[in-house]
Nucleic acid binder design. Structure first.
Length: 576
DNA sequence: CTGGGGAGGGGGCCC
DNA sequence: TGGGCCCCCTCCCCA
């Protein structure tokens, strides 16, 4: 008994899931493009990928071996078994580039296919990308790095040479499986509709900005899993143009990855520990409780993505999904039901609701997430300042999910909205009392909950001469006042390019990005645990030192963290 | 099962 | 622009 189309259907589903980012558990970074995929699929298609995804959730590929356009084709091939050749390059160039990439990635079937195509067209397989190094030298160079940075299986890395280009490969089985009919020559740009023709996708800031010049990206260096032993990719991100992005691709904003190396900030155990995948196996020690936590944390950061992010669909390369109600159609703070409606809409938009089972799966997940997830689920007042589709606006904007509240214009993407926001003067964006009456109500509600510092707690006006005209808070310098004033805006100028969430401050957005990318630069010397923030590490170190600087004045109880003292004090004060 | 404590993580905001 | 702190939510463990 055999279902004839089982494999095909399965692949189809997987590819659709990839397009939506559903259950994707790995991010592949190629230059400034991000691709999301499933570890299982990658591991099944290449031993090289298999070794990479074993410990890393964020994979950085060598940009001299593969560029975003080529990698998109590679990924398409992995998920479909079909080659969709870009029309941006000649076929020959394209196959050469693909061959280089396939060899680098140890996709032997794909390499064989390209080799065969090149052979037919009568040209030698050459590196598809103009490079200052020949393929041979280039690969050797790469291999040198691999020798110190690849996982154990890296010795299997296939190094193509001009001579073996014509030799049959042991695993050319796919050549037989794939007929020429299955090689689609066409414009993939047309397929996705959002590809810039060879130009830089104007979706975000350049990842390469501020990156170290050669060995690995700063991000790579900051990646919790990417110590030198585990990140064979060590891409030198810089010069080449990224060509295109597919549905599951997005560009990275600039993460400030310079400054002191994380290891310098918080030295982690050096070799021989470094020769092991340390982040996934922190040395066991201390109490069983700590061990339990340590067992837990790699799971938490698995893939560098939170479950909710993994399961959000992608739209135009941006991972979508209203964790904060950004795109929910139910208005402020709407949670489950609006999420559901949102996702259903996405399903319809993308595949006509073909996968009827997925919304229920995803909504099932989002149920739990919405119960749990931070401020978004709090009450909605936090998201009141976000620019997102609102119920009242909906009819007027159609597919323009991103609405500038001050002027009411709708935009199809957060980027476009952001660009538009820039055109407003700050005065226009500023919430004047008369304009922001309804917002005031929201904020008062928020104040009740969050009990912000009262203006009176600020120092004298002499020390703080710069006063906010909206809330009367005063500040020492105009820059801080300006920063504060932005909190009164209805727009949040800094969108996350992965999830689309908007932030009032760039730094907050950058920090937020770290959580998507699993960047945890701050490592505990004691247990190897890593954190996204220095402050967290400082807090954490008290676990090891036993220091409990926060004491309850009522019962004398001591706490390592202030927040837990506060929580404890509530226990005293709340009528129980 | 429940309440309290410990601790990880996220966002806001000021410096 | 990043660091530091505050606040919140959440999960886990344990009594």
């Amino acid at each position: 008994m055999e279902l004839p189309n089982h494999a095909k259907q399965l692949l189809l589903q997987l590819n659709q899931q990839r397009a939506k980012g559903f259950l994707c558990d790995v991010i592949i970074v190629v230059e400034n493009a991000l691709f999301r995929a499933h570890k299982n699929i990658l591991a099944a298609s290449s031993i090289y990928f298999k070794s990479l995804v074993l410990h890393d959730n964020l994979i950085n590929l060598d940009t001299e071996m593969v560029n975003p356009s080529v990698f998109r084709q590679v990924l398409d091939f992995i998920y479909t078994g079909k080659l969709l050749c870009s029309s941006e390059q000649s076929n020959e160039q394209n196959y050469s580039a693909l061959l280089t990439a396939a060899s680098y990635l140890q996709l032997h079937d794909l390499a064989a296919l390209c080799r065969r195509k090149l052979k037919r067209s009568g040209s030698k397989p050459l590196p598809g990308k103009p490079s200052t190094l020949g393929l041979h030298g280039r690969v050797r160079h790469n291999n040198q790095r691999l020798s110190s940075s690849t996982p154990a299986t890296s010795h299997n890395h296939y190094i193509p040479t001009p001579s073996d280009a014509d030799q049959p490969q042991p695993d050319e089985g796919l050549r037989d499986k794939l007929s020429d009919d299955e090689m689609f020559i066409g414009s993939s740009a047309g397929k996705n509709g959002n590809l810039s023709s060879g130009g830089e996708p104007d979706l975000g800031l350049d990842l390469s900005k501020k990156s170290p010049p050669s060995i690995g990206t700063g991000m790579d260096a900051l990646s919790p899993h990417s110590n030198s032993q585990e990140s064979p990719q060590s891409a030198s991100v810089s010069t080449t143009n990224s060509a295109s992005l597919d549905d599951s691709t997005t560009t990275l904003p600039s993460l400030d990855t310079t400054g002191p190396e994380p290891m310098e900030l918080t030295p982690t155990p050096r070799a021989p520990e470094d020769s092991q995948p340390k982040t996934n196996s922190p040395p066991p020690r201390k109490s069983t409780r700590q061990v339990a936590r340590k067992k837990e944390w790699p799971k938490r950061e698995a893939s560098g993505l939170k479950a909710e992010d993994r399961e959000r669909p992608l739209l135009n390369g941006v991972i979508m999904g209203p964790k904060e109600g950004r795109c929910s159609s139910g208005g402020y703070g709407s949670s489950f039901t609006s999420d559901q409606s949102f996702q259903c809409k996405e399903e319809e938009d993308e595949d006509g609701g073909e996968n009827g089972h997925e919304p229920s799966e995803e909504s099932g997940q989002s149920d739990g997430e919405n119960r749990g997830k931070g401020r978004g689920g709090e009450s909605g007042h936090q998201s009141a300042n976000y620019v997102y589709r609102q119920q009242g606006f909906e009819p007027a904007f159609g597919d323009n999910l991103y609405v500038c509240i001050p002027c009411g214009k709708g935009f199809p993407s957060s980027e476009q909205l952001n660009a538009h926001v820039e055109t407003h003067t700050e005065d226009e964006l500023y919430i004047k009392e008369e304009v922001g009456a309804f917002v005031k109500e929201e904020e008062e509600e928020a104040e009740d909950l969050s009990a912000p510092v009262a203006p009176t707690t600020f120092g004298s006006s002499e020390l703080r001469p710069f006063k906010c005209t909206v809330c009367s808070k005063s500040y020492k310098d105009p820059a801080t006042l300006r920063q504060h004033e932005k909190s009164h805006w209805l727009t949040r100028p800094f969108p996350c390019n992965i999830c689309g969430k908007m932030f009032t401050q760039r730094g907050t957005m950058t920090r937020h990005m770290r959580s998507h990318l699993g960047l945890k630069p701050f490592a505990c010397e004691e247990c190897g645990m890593r954190f996204t923030r220095q402050y967290r590490l400082t807090e954490h170190m008290r676990v090891h030192s036993g220091e409990k600087p926060y004491e309850c004045q009522l019962c004398g109880g001591k706490f390592t963290q202030q927040r837990n003292l506060i929580s404890h004090l509530r226990m005293h004060t709340s009528p129980s």
